[in-house]
Write a protein that binds this DNA or RNA. Structure first.
Length: 641
RNA sequence: GCAUGCGUAGCUCAGCUGGAUAGAGCAUCGGUCUUCGAAACCGAAUGUCGUUGGUUCGAAUCCAACCGCGUGCGCCA
């Protein structure tokens, strides 16, 4: 079995360097007025202070308060201290020197030395015009290596639960964002399909004479749990199982004994031996169990709008022939040393070693991960390998990654060192703030959660469609159901992706499928309004020029334009920091900006044809960005809802 | 014990590489639908940013100690 997903804990923020993103940032600079601003100020700072350009960072950021303008530059205080000057004077001198014509309308010094900048309306308009393209300012990466994303991580014969939701959708979003940036992505579903637990289940099913062709996952899960319980009661059987050199269960669990279980255990052990030796009959049955499990996993993935299919499955069994060679390689290099009969890897900076082979010769979880990591870097040729796994496995991945680096398996053929990262997501807790137990408890399965969300979404959509003035009035039942499903799923995904993934959160169904406020449906609603206004303008638009001039004059228009232009930067940040919540926050801000614009700036009712065309184009760009962004989260954006 | 992570409004959380008055959503109270979609918008109210000390022109953010909660720790996966 691979990684048990459930309760866990917080993690440190992940700050990563991503070479491809940097070049994209520079390429996108032409579209971005802030880049022009930065260049101009950097040059002026260098000229005034005599410092090299790389030490002349103007520290530009969006203004905290709109009254201060669009951007502020915070370089003066720190630099003045460094060179022994007066901050306000330095800021004034720099502004006098800076070439801001065509970029900024106004730039002034405030407070202790802040520089407040009002962007020129024309600069915003022309930046937006360039931005309005299928790429939306995102420049494809030139990297030739791939990115591997380890996601989902289900166990064969086990029902998916809420924890799997996280590993699946966080991983999917990270994969999509990298693809959006032009990277080749390998989605690796490292399923637990090998070892004694599977053999136990298989043996139990055979004893019961179950027809594996009509097996449901629920039957399978029941058989799995029953087999686990049997095994847990039996020490002798487990010890015997250890002798077969397979990955079994912790000794601590083996306290009581019973003869019936011993027989079952004996049966499982024999089954495993036959499975491992390639017994055709057993292998076929094993595959049926996997098929049965994956059937539901793929169905769930489809419901969730996650790109995950058979081609992404590469279970632990795939690496079974690489475990021996892995240990040998470590032993040979001197990194793997014997300790009390077992083989361990030791680290210079910590006491805790990593076990890679047991005293009885059996391999461990870590051994498989070492082999898989090498495969991902060197066979899948990835310069970035991302593991979306429960935060409780922090130490484990630190150990694995360090071991991989020590032996050099993180190096690609040309010597490039791949980046190995664990995205440690927090646990889903119960109302009592304790981990939702799934091994024993009858808690919410993932399927139950999604069914509930879809049902509530559909109910909501149906109810609204009964209003004759509603845009959804008169739609077919199937269409309403599709929209309802999209709304329900959006609510669940946004609730999960919307805050820092490393944090635990309390599972609250009502909050998860909420449709008001800062939620997935709020974003979908904003999108539907964008679609609606554009749909109504269609006739008139037929007579308009294809790319009418954009004018950005009203405060709400400025606000919207500034927000839109930040999109490429946000997508890059999400990839760099492996943090989907930034995209959620951005899209929420976009929806809010659009709503403000919608409130304050008449579009269809605007009497000036040029301004009307300009505003329609703002709507179109907004819709494009919203749809693109939601797409990166794997959330569909209905035209009506 | 060692390691690691977290403590921000009644609740759930933001706070982007230290910056101007700490922000959203929910809940509460009050406004806005004959007017481009009210799943929306506008307004009101709400805080010893766990505590103490330190660094700094400037700290929720960096450092130290302490308090509280969580998680992990050699033959499970």
């Amino acid at each position: 079995m691979p990684r048990p997903i459930s309760p866990g804990i917080h993690a440190s923020p992940i700050l990563l360097y991503m070479p491809a993103a940097v070049s994209a940032a520079e390429s996108a600079a032409s579209v971005d007025p802030t880049a022009a601003l930065e260049r101009a100020l950097r040059a002026a700072i260098a000229a005034v202070t005599g410092l090299p350009a790389e030490e002349s960072d103007p520290h530009i950021r969006p203004s905290g308060n709109p009254q201060f303008g669009d951007f502020q530059a915070n370089f003066a205080m720190a630099l003045a201290k460094k060179i022994g000057a007066n901050p306000r004077q330095l800021a004034t001198d720099v502004l006098a020197r800076a070439q801001l014509t065509g970029i900024a309308d106004k730039a002034e010094v405030a407070g202790p030395g802040f520089v407040n900048i009002h962007l020129a309306g024309g600069a915003l308009a022309s930046a937006l015009d360039a931005f309005d393209s299928p790429a939306l300012g995102i420049v494809p990466a030139t990297a030739t290596y791939a990115v591997t994303v380890d996601l989902c991580g289900v166990n064969v014969a086990k029902q998916m639960h809420v924890g799997h939701l996280r590993a699946t959708i966080i991983g999917d979003t990270i994969a999509r964002v990298h693809e959006r940036l032009g990277r080749k992505v390998w989605r690796e579903n490292h399923l637990g399909d090998w070892g004694l637990p599977i053999a136990m289940t298989l043996a139990a099913l055979r004893r019961a004479g179950t027809n594996l062709d009509s097996l449901t996952l629920e039957d399978l899960n029941r058989a799995y749990r029953a087999a686990q319980l049997e095994g847990r009661d039996d020490a002798a059987g487990m010890i015997a199982a250890h002798a077969t050199r397979v990955g079994p269960h912790r000794i601590a669990e083996l306290e009581a004994q019973n003869t019936g279980a011993a027989l079952a255990q004996e049966d499982a052990r024999a089954t495993l031996v036959r499975l491992q030796s390639g017994d055709a009959q057993l292998v076929a049955e094993w595959q049926k169990i996997i098929h049965c499990t994956m059937q539901e996993v793929f169905e769930t993935a489809a419901v969730l709008g996650v790109q995950l299919t058979d081609e992404h499955s590469r279970g632990e069994s795939f690496f079974r022939d690489r475990l021996g060679p892995t240990v040998e390689a470590f032993a040979k290099s001197g990194l793997g040393v014997e300790d009390d009969g077992a083989i361990v890897v030791r680290y210079p900076d910590r006491d805790r070693p990593m076990l890679i082979r047991k005293r009885d010769g059996g391999f461990l979880y870590a051994t498989t991960d070492l082999a898989a990591c090498k495969f991902r870097v060197q066979d899948l040729k990835s310069d970035r390998v991302v593991y979306v796994v429960d935060a409780r496995q922090r130490d484990h991945f630190k150990d694995v990654f360090d071991a991989v680096r020590m032996i050099g398996w993180n190096k690609l053929a040309d010597g490039t060192e791949a980046e190995l990262v664990h995205v440690p997501f927090g646990s889903v807790l119960g109302a009592d703030k304790k981990p939702l137990k799934t091994r024993s408890g009858e808690n919410f399965t993932l399927k139950a959660l999604l069914d509930e969300a879809i049902e509530r979404g559909t109910r909501e959509v149906r109810a609204r469609s009964t209003d004759p003035n509603a845009p959804t009035a008169g739609m077919s039942d199937a269409d309403l159901a599709a929209i309802g499903s999209a709304v329900g799923i959006a609510a669940v995904k946004y609730a999960d992706l919307g805050s820092d993934v490393t944090r635990d959160y309390v599972f609250d169904l009502d909050r998860m499928v909420s449709f008001e406020g800062d939620t997935g449906p709020y974003l979908q609603y904003a999108h539907a309004r964008m679609a609606s206004i554009l749909g109504k303008a269609l006739d008139a638009a037929a007579h308009a020029p294809p790319r009418p001039a954009i004018s950005v004059a009203e405060p709400a228009e400025r606000q919207l334009a500034l927000t839109l232009l930040r999109y490429p930067q946000i997508v890059r940040e999400v990839a760099q920091h492996l943090d989907p919540s930034r995209l959620c926050a951005y899209l929420h801000g976009l929806a809010t900006s659009y709503n403000g614009f919608y409130q304050q700036c008449p579009v269809l009712k605007c009497e000036d044809p040029a301004l009307r065309a300009s505003r329609l184009r703002l709507c179109a760009i907004s819709k494009h960005v919203m749809k693109d962004g939601l797409g990166l989260l794997g959330i569909t954006a209905p035209e009506r809802m």
